[in-house]
């Protein structure tokens, strides 16, 4: 038997909308500690890692670890049938090939139940080691979204440079180029508006904007985004979901061939 009720059901909607462009089919792994999901996009360039603690749910009951294979597209369709202030109960049993989604209106007057058929998904699971990052940037999530969106007007990829002076996003394409620089700013009135840079070592990395624009769909989940950089390693784009979990996106850096390097570094 597995059952988890989330009072703020709209959170589910936001989570699914944030990940569905990246992972199509994924296993939702339910255990005593909570619900997690890991999945890659179809070209295996980006990875999503989601965890929601069991504390987030009331009640939360998980008799035995269970893996629920679901399609993000279908999940999104079902969740769109819920109202924003509905609570959402997810229920299934070991014997069943269904997962039930039960939406209950806040005044308990309306209850809807949708059953989704489970899929058997062979997913590769990657072990993500803890590592020391060269540079960690914490900034307003909507600011990061804006930067990615604006720069994708110019080019397909963004070059991100973190130095002690700040972080610089550059993109160029056939019509021209764009450069956005952010200085560390810790004096903003609102703590959420600050730009905070922890720097062990300066980094210069290039990423595909297409994926970053997928990731920033999660902006509504958290006011802040944490970007962790390490040379020749994937970027981590992390959204803390209140105090109940996290959604992390990993994106492999682009390898620049010698031609592009020559044009980007002045002689």
């Amino acid at each position: 038997m597995f059952e988890a009720r989330l009072l703020n059901g709209s959170l589910w909607k936001k989570i699914i909308e944030s990940i569905k462009d990246v992972v199509e089919d994924a296993n939702w792994e339910c255990s005593g500690s909570g619900i997690s999901l890991q999945g890659m996009d179809s070209s295996h360039v980006a990875l999503v890692s989601l965890h929601l603690k069991s504390d987030a749910f009331d009640p939360y009951r998980c008799d035995r670890n269970i893996s629920l294979g679901l399609s993000s597209t279908n999940l999104s369709k079902i969740l769109k049938c819920s109202s924003n202030d509905d609570s959402v109960i997810i229920r299934t049993s070991e014997a069943s090939d269904n997962v039930s989604f039960i939406f209950e209106s806040s005044n308990s007057e309306k209850v809807s139940q949708f059953d989704l058929k489970l899929m058997n998904i062979d997913s590769e699971h990657l072990g993500i080691p803890d590592m020391e990052y060269d540079s960690i940037v914490k900034m307003p999530s909507n600011e990061f979204q804006r930067i990615c969106r604006d720069l994708s007007l110019l080019g397909e990829s963004v070059q991100i440079a973190c130095t002690k002076d700040g972080v610089q996003f550059t993109s160029s394409g056939s019509i021209g180029s764009g450069k956005i620089s952010l200085r560390p700013n810790i004096t903003a009135e609102n703590l959420d508006d600050t730009v905070n840079i922890e720097l062990n070592e300066a980094v210069l990395l290039t990423f595909a904007l297409r994926y970053l624009n997928f990731f920033t769909k999660a902006t509504s989940l958290a006011p802040r985004v944490i970007l962790s950089f390490k040379t020749e390693h994937p970027l981590v784009v992390e959204y803390q979901i209140q105090d109940i979990g996290y959604l992390k996106f990993y994106l492999a850096p682009k390898i620049e061939d010698d031609d592009t390097k020559q044009t980007t570094t002045p002689d």
Binding site: E29, L47, I66, H125, G127, P234, L251, P253
Partner: peptide, 18 residues
């Protein structure tokens, strides 16, 4: 020019099927 994300991470524990 975008390497696969697997090339950075090792294999993890695969969860059992339902």
């Amino acid at each position: 020019d975008n390497p696969k994300i697997e090339s950075f991470f090792g294999k993890g524990k695969v969860a059992k099927s339902h």
